[in-house]
């Protein structure tokens, strides 16, 4: 049997495909289990006298949210300016430059703000989660936690998930404001549009639903980043090289998952 599959290239290819599929399904199941267990600890931990630590969650929120604020502000301002430049350039052909306000308002709140925040957080915090948990895995610290009677999911994943779920929408909202400000500033410089008027027209163009769509997406991205980061951390084996591989993998997988999830969500939410 073994000799057969080794000789036949098609059989070998099918075998590899099968193994890959099984591994992918296994990994998906692991992520789901990780999510379920984290939510369990967040909801029921206190009742079992093993609550998710508040201090850890606050630390995590500082790291994920507050420290990311300056870079989120700069990036979303730049995105706003970029959208304004492109929008004015395109709309000039129709002589409808002033409609740029609506375009920026909708695309920033519905699409760009959650996306840019998610990609940034995946790069900053998702990778850090994978590296930290991976290093702990190698140093037997995860085993030590379990032997002491501390669930590693409660101790490491739940605070991170909680922090992400709180901070991602908050960051996304900041990115909304900064993105629109960027658009306003450029429009003021290029079209001579008064900033007050710009903001008034933005308010007219935006529904609560538009902003909510972005915030809901950011919650989904928060879950994806945390799960992919932590799962890759727990899966580390093979020393420092393994940690490096897990870190890279977590960033690439997170960003891929974010963009695909964004596409799916946009399709559902825009119907």
């Amino acid at each position: 049997m073994a000799a057969d599959t080794q000789a036949n290239p098609i059989a070998r290819w099918v075998e590899r495909l099968g193994r890959g599929t099984v591994r992918a399904v296994e990994e998906l199941g692991y992520h789901a289990a990780l999510l379920a267990e984290s939510l369990y600890w967040i909801a029921w931990g206190a009742r079992r006298r093993q609550s998710v630590r508040f201090a850890d969650t606050v630390l995590e929120m500082m790291e994920v949210g507050i420290r990311a604020l300056p870079i989120v502000a700069v990036l979303s301002l730049a995105i706003g300016v970029m959208l304004a430049i492109q929008g004015i350039h395109t709309l000039k052909t129709f002589g409808a430059e002033s409609q740029v306000v609506v375009g920026i308002a909708l695309s920033v709140t519905r699409e760009f703000a959650p996306l840019i925040v998610a990609i940034l957080v995946a790069g900053r915090s998702g990778s850090a989660l994978a590296a930290r948990i991976g290093t702990m895995q190698i140093g037997q610290e995860i085993d030590a936690l379990r032997v002491i009677g501390v669930s590693p999911v409660r101790f490491l994943v739940a605070p991170a998930l909680l922090a992400m779920l709180i901070m991602m929408p908050a960051l996304t909202f900041c990115a909304d404001v900064m993105g629109i400000m960027g658009g306003a500033l450029y429009s003021a410089a290029d079209l001579g549009l008064d900033i007050g008027t710009y903001l008034d027209r933005t308010r007219d163009a935006l529904d609560v639903e538009d902003v909510m769509q972005g915030l809901v997406k950011s919650l989904v991205f928060a879950v994806l980043i945390t799960l992919i980061g932590t799962a890759n951390g727990f899966a580390v084996s093979g020393g420092a090289q393994g940690v490096g591989r897990a870190t890279t993998r977590s960033v690439v997988l997170s960003i891929t998952a974010i963009v695909i999830a964004d596409m799916i969500f946009t399709w559902f939410l825009s119907r």
Binding site: G139, D143, G149
Partner: peptide
């Protein structure tokens, strides 16, 4: 049960 059991790991496994 784990409160009644202690373990000292080879590399120490102290939380860094």
């Amino acid at each position: 049960l784990r409160r009644k059991i202690g373990m000292s790991f080879q590399g120490g496994a102290l939380f860094n």
